[in-house]
Design a protein around this nucleic acid. Structure first.
Lengths: 214, 214, 214, 214
DNA sequence: AATGAATGAGCGTTCATTCAT
DNA sequence: TATGAATGAACGCTCATTCAT
């Protein structure tokens, strides 16, 4: 395997310096677009190459096999989602309850986006037979829950670490489950706001008064 | 086994008479098994044939194309899931709250089964690009919600039709969302019982006191 | 091979007695229709069975293989074309020249029919690799030429047998060649009458004054 | 061999640069050979690949589908036939009548070649269900007729454009029709010369004295 | 970095044919 | 006569991957 050398003499893997880095990113984005637009069963190296405007040979210079490409695509994706969470929380001001409401609302509204509606079910399916998707999900949802935990702890400081963990798991799972029903082009898309209402009510009730098991 | 061959010589669709009906069913089950075991991206006519112990040619005598096979598999599957709901409810006695708890518990526990954990994410993904999967989901979840609605109406008769609809949507969506987290082989599988606890608590609170939007 | 016995005790091949004979004919006609409508590259036992409203199994009871079916179809077809020639000639009255003009006109006009335009090129192509099509063509065109010869001999009795043979070959070949140009849906279809004009002129000139080689 | 690879890096269609161009041509020729040898109903990508000494995958790298291959084969073929016409005419000297005789003789003699006898009926059949074969025939025969028209106009300058068109159509159609009768391995192959005699006589008579409709 | 060429496997599908009933 | 079941081969096509340049 040929290795590119950067100007400071450190050996870099393919496509990690200068133009290559840019191309790698473009490929990851093209791959994500293709996955969303066509689904995993239409996700092929050839089509990614076409979507990215590359030749197949060149694509495979950057990502020598399909697994590597999927991994890169997921890695690129996870970061963007986490950034969104953090930003929302930062913009929601100091009141913990307002922060919580903002996050729940954000995540729910996000389900309406074609990108989210299409992307996650593919990943969930993928995670049943492709190891890296499992890792992707673990990392992503872990950080997601962490944010929820921090906010919930402010709302009700009496909750133990364990109880917070379980609440976060329940809440995040519940929201994800709406993807297939209120997502983009799904039959209950127009009911999203009402789902948010119900969700916020019941989640806040759980945080404040629920007898969450220890 | 009922034989539908009529005495007036009307042609039957393939695989609907005697031996054929049996083979058709065996194929649908083999297909389901394969989908669960290997995922949709490994779901091919050849592999279904192999799983069912048939030659490819013979499989395609029964199901002339892949769509027809998938349709048959889903149709076969939907019925079995709905039957389970009904049975559970029937066995749960007369108390509506007990019935509700039994159903929620059943559905949650069902998520632990490998079959369920693997099957549904594939269908959700499928439903983004295969029409019949959409229809399958619509029918299946509609009946599922109907059962929830009936029981909830008994628990709190003041809830309007609309409110019941929305509650059912929220509850069923929330439960489905746990598939990827407490399902078979998933990292939080052992927390299932605690999730059930939380779920039942918050769902019952919603049914009794929640200000569900109209 | 099972052999049916007729009422007089003579063994008949499949499908030659009573209902069977009728079905055999229906199959031959369905086969011809399919060939014309879809071309030889879409000509399969299955499609013939479907066109004829039979099951594949039953079709193959009458014609145990594809060759036998094609043979039957061609045999059935040849007779109908020859009958048309004879009838035309009979209806054209006593004047030989009028008879000749009538035949030429008939054959040319026949090229405009979808049936003829589509059928013959398939047979010509078939005759390059399927023995029975060669035999079909030989028989059919031989009788066709015979009719031309009889009429031409009346127009110019000085022509030798050999000369008549060659004239008939030239004339029939020339007309057949128009199939691909003035046939049904072909670019020069509307010029058919003018081609008939030219053809009759030049053919009559040849018959009367041409120095046809001996 | 000209190499078309440009220096500015513009992507070329597959098989147009260097080695690829050579392979593309070899494939087209192999395809033609197969069509002639085995007929269209035996014309498959696999057999073309085998004839050309390629793997199926590689053949489909050059021609991504069967249509593209057939198109390339026909396009390659048409040019060679037209070149022959032009050459013949050029070599026939200045006398228009001699040119005409030379062309008619060439085309007739060409029918005796296995290549021609087998190729054209396949194309005629193809043109009933494959669009590009229609285009192939239109272009090819149009140029063919154009050459005839030019020569005939010199023989009899009084003929109108329209009359020339019709004569050319009649003459070319008539000659084509002989393919199935005096072609390679056909029953009247040995009579070719006599057919040429008759054809030239009657065609020249038509050109000079025929009352060709306006 | 980038391209074009090549391989071999697998896919969904159609088909002629055989056979038991 | 007629039907349904089954086989095995072939087809057009897409694909991941490898390699030379």
């Amino acid at each position: 395997m040929r290795v590119q050398k950067s100007s400071v003499g450190i050996a870099l893997p393919r496509g990690r310096s200068g133009k290559g880095q840019h191309t790698s990113l473009a490929i990851a984005l093209a791959a994500e677009k293709l996955l969303i637009e066509q689904g995993y069963h239409n996700f092929s190296m050839r089509k990614v190459a076409q979507t990215a405007g590359l030749t197949l040979g060149n694509l495979q210079y950057y990502f020598p096999n399909k697994d590597a490409l999927i991994k890169a695509m997921l890695d690129n994706c996870i970061q963007r989602y986490l950034d969104r969470f953090e930003q929302t929380r930062a913009h929601a001001g100091e009141d913990p309850e307002a922060q919580f409401k903002a996050i729940i609302t954000l995540v729910f509204k996000d389900l309406n986006r074609k990108t989210t509606t299409r992307f996650f079910p593919e990943v969930w399916s993928l995670s049943n037979h492709y190891g890296h998707a499992v890792k992707f999900m673990d990392e992503m949802y872990e950080k997601y829950r962490l944010i929820l935990i921090e906010v919930m702890a402010l709302i009700n400081p009496r909750l133990s670490e364990h109880q917070l963990q379980q609440l976060a798991l329940f809440i995040s799972s519940s929201i994800e489950g709406h993807t297939m029903f209120v997502g983009y082009d799904k039959p209950w898309m127009s009911e999203t706001d009402k789902m948010i209402d119900i969700a916020i009510q019941s989640f806040l009730w759980l945080i404040r008064c629920g007898r969450i098991p220890a």
